[in-house]
Amino acid sequence: MLKIGPYEFSSRLLLGTGKYPSLDVQKEAVEASGAEILTFAVRRMNIFSPEQPNFLEQLDLSKYKLLPNTAGAKTAEEAVRIARLAKASGLCDMIKVEVIGCDKTLLPDPVETLKAAEMLLEEGFIVLPYTSDDVVLAKRLEELGCHAIMPGASPIGSGQGIINPLNLSFIIEQANVPVIVDAGIGGPADAALAMELGADGVLLNTAVSGAADPVKMAKAMKLAVEAGRLGYEAGRIPKKRYASASSPTEGMSVV
């Protein structure tokens, strides 16, 4: 079970809800992923077209926990404002703190992220900060009281997979709260690797929504996360430099 604050989840895959080709495909992909936590962004409503369909309104909210993000924020104050707006919906108390410090790489601003996390924890939010794979920053966020740490695998939407498995494994080893690898996942192998490294979960969006067949990819990611987790729990063999025969060397019938 994945435990985040007071909540428990049987799925370790967290799914983003952006950029799907259609609402129908999105609904099917969400279903196929088995995800129980879905991320959303907070944006201005087009008040002149109330009939516009909204994915969230078509969702059975008893089946999912919402994880709104603070995307768009560049300062801690902006992130806190977005988080408060999200909470005022009455639908959620978890927040993905996302404070971007660089437009080109979309890498998080560590100083503002730390500040936002502190302010939101004081207000009683369940705080999950999106952070770089910096080991010490992850530690600092945990010390503040964050309920999970979400280091990126590589830049958001890049699909480059896990660029620094060493740092991720350091973060995972030292953490006493769930570590969810967030951003940069490209294919199922990336998700499985994150889980094999010992991550408690994987958060991805574009890898599914941008796939040629998002529904099939959602299922692939579900299986990859499950396989990676099982592999981690099973304990993989250490890597050796030379071969080691699987068949016995004794009792060979020599002609």
Partner: peptide
């Protein structure tokens, strides 16, 4: 007045 809602996002 700001009127906002949840939209798709990662």
């Amino acid at each position: 007045v700001e009127i906002v809602h949840f939209v798709g996002g990662g």
